[in-house]
Simulated scan of single mutants.
Amino acid sequence: MNEKEGGSLATLVGLTAQKYSITIGALRARSRVQNTVFQRRVFCLAAHLAGYSYSQISRVLNKDHTTIIHSVREARKNEHIRSEAYELLEALGNAVIPDKKWALRPNGKYTRIYEKYEGKCAVCSFDEVVEVHHIIPQRVGGTDDPENLILLCPNHHAMADRGMLFMKDINTPNSQSTCPHPPNSNNIII
């Protein structure tokens, strides 16, 4: 666990256990008892809304990351779980107000790129997990200018990093893209 995971994420686990009068071991156990599943989903959603990745949450709960993805998706559908998750975040002091899709909006230098692509992968429109990709890598002089950034899901980001994604595969948010490569070109995203 890194420092962030060892700090407030561990505190969030403890708060969840305390709130529901259960042990941390019960949260981490394989039990599928309805109350435990509910409590686990509250924790997963709160941790995700606080900015932790699925893999960070999965390490804390000793679960597979796909289990965490499923828990967060199911939790988002349940108003009661959402309100419980917000209570935990407030107790932790990290309350965030998500957008209408219950997904975190970034703060800082990448906000414009998230808005440009509406928080969705530019290739497949996946919106659960997205990452900012530098078309021209920073290591070869690429900048953080919006014209050099694109929003991709982890799968398409990995493909772009390996030179397996072409600009023709990109869905631009509008017909007058500010991307330095024309959308119909066959230029590889580096």
Score class of each variant (00 low, 15 high):
4 K>G: 06
7 G>L: 02
7 G>N: 13
8 S>H: 00
9 L>V: 01
10 A>Q: 13
11 T>A: 12
12 L>H: 14
12 L>R: 04
13 V>R: 13
14 G>Q: 06
15 L>Q: 09
16 T>E: 08
16 T>L: 06
16 T>V: 07
17 A>G: 08
19 K>F: 05
19 K>M: 09
20 Y>D: 00
22 I>V: 14
25 G>Q: 11
26 A>S: 10
27 L>S: 04
28 R>H: 03
30 R>C: 02
31 S>N: 11
33 V>N: 07
34 Q>L: 06
38 F>P: 02
48 H>W: 10
48 H>M: 05
48 H>P: 00
49 L>I: 04
52 Y>Q: 01
52 Y>I: 02
53 S>F: 06
55 S>M: 00
57 I>T: 01
57 I>E: 00
59 R>Y: 00
61 L>W: 00
62 N>Q: 10
63 K>G: 04
66 T>Y: 02
67 T>Y: 00
68 I>W: 01
69 I>N: 12
69 I>T: 09
71 S>G: 10
71 S>P: 07
72 V>Y: 00
73 R>T: 03
75 A>F: 10
76 R>P: 01
77 K>A: 12
80 H>V: 10
81 I>T: 00
81 I>S: 03
81 I>F: 05
81 I>P: 00
84 E>D: 14
84 E>N: 11
85 A>L: 04
86 Y>V: 06
86 Y>A: 10
87 E>I: 03
88 L>R: 10
88 L>Q: 12
88 L>E: 08
91 A>S: 13
94 N>P: 02
98 P>F: 03
99 D>W: 10
101 K>I: 07
101 K>A: 14
102 W>Y: 11
104 L>W: 08
105 R>I: 08
105 R>L: 11
106 P>M: 00
110 Y>V: 08
111 T>P: 03
111 T>L: 13
113 I>C: 14
114 Y>E: 14
116 K>M: 14
118 E>C: 09
119 G>C: 00
120 K>A: 08
120 K>W: 01
121 C>W: 04
121 C>Q: 02
122 A>Y: 11
122 A>D: 08
122 A>H: 11
123 V>Y: 13
126 F>W: 03
126 F>G: 13
126 F>I: 04
129 V>I: 08
130 V>P: 12
131 E>D: 15
133 H>F: 06
134 H>I: 13
139 R>G: 00
139 R>I: 05
141 G>R: 12
142 G>A: 08
142 G>P: 09
142 G>K: 07
143 T>Y: 13
143 T>F: 14
143 T>V: 12
144 D>F: 12
144 D>K: 10
145 D>N: 15
146 P>D: 11
146 P>E: 10
148 N>M: 15
150 I>L: 06
151 L>S: 02
153 C>G: 13
153 C>P: 08
155 N>M: 03
159 M>L: 15
161 D>T: 15
161 D>K: 15
162 R>E: 13
162 R>G: 10
162 R>C: 10
163 G>F: 05
163 G>E: 05
166 F>R: 15
167 M>V: 10
168 K>Y: 06
168 K>R: 15
168 K>T: 09
171 N>A: 07
171 N>V: 09
172 T>G: 03
176 Q>K: 14
177 S>N: 05
179 C>W: 02
179 C>M: 13
179 C>T: 11
180 P>C: 07
180 P>M: 08
180 P>H: 09
181 H>G: 01
183 P>G: 05
185 S>W: 15
186 N>H: 14
188 I>K: 15
189 I>Q: 06
190 I>G: 01
190 I>T: 11
190 I>H: 12
